[in-house]
Write a protein that binds this DNA or RNA. Structure first.
Length: 573
RNA sequence: CCGCCCAUAGCUCAAUUGGAUAGAGCAUCCGCCUUCUAAGCGGAAGGUUCCAGGUUCGAGCCCUGGUGGGCGGACCA
């Protein structure tokens, strides 16, 4: 059990003993300022309000029943009724050596929908957020002991594919090799679009191909498969470069739900949830009605008989609940899809595709902006390919590493540059509040100062350097900790809060909370590093061992935290 | 017309979801390297949290009404 849980348990018991209703929470939080101790319990004030009594007096009553002698060196009431707790150094030291693995008490099957690019084009910066945020949560929930099922809901079934098949057929007819023609998916798409717009005959063929493809025509299917294979290979390569854990087996493309679309529709019609309207089959949701009482419409079948993404998302929901047996389904999808997600969730519940026990969660995110505050584009105004962005990140990082540390040999520099460059991009994204737009800034993310991944990676290398110098193996290092300096206490406290932070991120799916924590941990280590010498002359053996233990724990916690974010560490930089 | 989201230091971002004197980093200024990597550390300065009301012991956060911006809303995804 972590510090927070211990404190909550003790304070809750004391509150109950003081005659406070059990629905009142201790409201335990980290203290904002060091003068207010390490933790503060704010529950007395809320309880006093409910009980219509004086909050300070009630806080005193709680305190009378509260026994923290083995944990705290000071507990005091302040302000209107805050209970401030300063933890005992011996207790902290003891907790550090007793530090246990974090395995969740109630493991769940969690389906995570992320990345989900459209296969018609190359991946671009718009796919970055879903890909890395989703990946971070997949890693984190897995680390906590949940059974995570990654689902890459790739768009391989839309109307554009008729166009692309027709274009591919054209190339193959001219004797081109498929792989060569599809070498640049972006160019291929543009060519195809050009033909579609300029040539009515080509356009008609493209439209006909969509229908033929979806009804299982062998020729179309074969061309389509060729295209999909190339596009998927491109995406898997991006994931590899990004150090994202998505593999081929995680692909659950739109097309895979094709066979169930008819069933979804008939179920909705039978239950009276979908009705005929202007020739289309539509679900009208009063749950999302506006002020005038107009329900929100969601088309599940077009008047021509074609299906849309609402239908496949519902079929997908059935698969995740029925076949995958999910307890919790997380969607990392752009905030612009919020209405659509609400419609799908509500309809899924109404149609009993999803039981109340299953949690459906859309975790939206904002847009990546350029320095001008407008959506991130190339200088000429085009979309930025993800592949190009990653190459640039590594190039910029390599230049910096070469400047800062010319002693490293070339292969080392390449390796470090890749980890630093990719880590910088990912961390810059993950460290911002998910739901807001954020400004993409090369200099800020690679500046090596402040809340950046290079700063955290650097903190890690500094620790590794100490162990290298001492000739001691950090892995599995164990020694008793004794806390003397303020920097040691601050560092110890931070280290002990790791699992609390993971719980919070797992619940709310905000990775920036983990980033903030890691930055504070790294800062705490840096202050410790400046103030508390480890290997220098005059440090006695016991102190040295204790400090080495703090170093070892700092290293593993930093590395583990970064690992959960999908960011790699290195020995030197 | 309807609906959702956003607005915090000059800039980029936080604020444990209603808690104390709103915090970091850039940039600016002042200190610290013959000693474990100075890609670092310590300090100073910087605020009408878009505006106006309201709720209460207490509001950046909740409610109402504005202003400004972004995004969605029947046959793309």
């Amino acid at each position: 059990m972590g510090i927070k849980d211990i404190l909550i348990e003790r304070i809750a018991a004391a509150m109950q003993a003081a005659g406070i209703p059990s629905d009142c929470s201790p409201m335990l939080a980290l203290s904002g300022k060091s003068q207010f101790g390490d933790y503060q319990a704010n529950g007395a004030m809320g309880a006093a309000k409910q009980m219509k009594t004086n909050p300070r007096e009630l806080a005193q009553k709680i305190l009378d029943k509260l026994d923290l002698d083995d944990i705290a060196e000071k507990v005091e009431i302040a302000g209107p009724g805050f209970i401030n707790i300063s933890l005992n150094k011996h207790f902290l030291a003891g907790q550090l050596t007793a530090k246990s693995e974090q395995i969740t008490a109630k493991p769940q099957t969690v389906v995570i929908d992320y990345s989900s690019p459209n296969l018609a084009k190359e991946m671009h910066v718009g796919h970055l957020r879903s890909t890395i945020i989703g990946d971070a949560l997949a890693r984190l929930l897995e680390y906590q002991g949940h059974s995570v099922i990654r689902q890459n809901h790739m768009g391989d079934w839309g109307t554009q594919f008729g166009m692309l098949i027709a274009e591919l057929e054209l190339h193959l007819g001219e004797g081109d090799q498929a792989n060569l023609a599809l070498n640049d998916l972006e160019v291929f798409y543009q060519q195809s679009k050009k033909h579609f717009d300029a040539d009515p005959e080509f356009a008609d063929k493209a439209r006909a191909y969509v229908v033929k493809l979806q009804s299982g025509d062998a020729h179309c299917r074969k061309l389509w498969q060729k295209f999909i294979d190339v596009s998927v290979a491109h995406n898997l390569e991006i994931y590899k470069q990004l150090n994202v854990g998505l593999r081929k087996e995680h692909i659950a493309a739109e097309s895979s739900y094709n066979d169930d679309l008819g069933n979804v529709l008939s179920s909705l019609l039978e239950q009276g949830i979908a009705v005929d309207s202007e020739g289309a089959k539509v679900v009208f949701l009063n749950e999302l009605a506006d002020k005038n009482g107009e329900p929100s419409p969601m088309i599940v079948q077009k008047s021509g008989g074609g299906f849309l993404y609402a239908s496949s998302d519902l079929a997908c929901l059935r698969h995740r609940v029925g076949t995958l047996q999910a307890d919790r389904i997380l969607y990392f999808i752009d905030a612009r899809q919020s209405l659509h997600m609400k419609q799908v969730f509500i309809t899924g519940r109404k149609a009993s595709f999803v039981p109340p026990t299953v949690s459906l969660e859309h975790h939206p995110f904002g847009t990546m902006m350029g320095a001008d505050g407008r959506p991130f584009k190339t200088r000429s105004g085009g979309t930025v390919k993800l592949a190009d962005l990653l190459v640039e990140a590594v190039e910029r990082a390599e230049k910096l590493v070469r400047e800062k540390n010319p002693d490293l040999d070339d292969s080392e520099i390449k390796l470090i540059a890749r980890k630093v460059g990719i880590g910088a991009i990912k961390y810059a994204d993950l460290s911002k509040t998910r739901t807001n737009d954020y400004i993409f800034d090369w200099n800020a993310m690679l500046s090596f100062e402040g809340n950046t991944s290079p700063y955290l990676q650097y903190a890690y290398t500094r620790i590794r350097s100490i162990f290298r110098k001492a000739g001691i193996e950090a892995e599995g290092f164990s020694a008793p900790v004794s806390i003397e300096q303020a920097q040691e206490k601050a560092l110890a406290l931070k280290l002990l809060q790791f699992n609390e932070v993971l719980d919070q991120v797992a619940a709310d799916c905000y990775p920036h909370i983990l980033c903030t924590y890691l930055y504070e941990l790294a800062s705490a280590f840096m202050s410790f590093y400046e103030q508390c010498p480890v290997l220098k002359d005059g440090v006695d053996s016991a102190t040295q061992q204790s400090r080495l233990q703090l170093c070892a724990l700092s290293a593993t916690t930093l590395a583990q935290g970064l690992n959960l974010l999908g960011i790699e560490v290195m020995e030197k930089m």
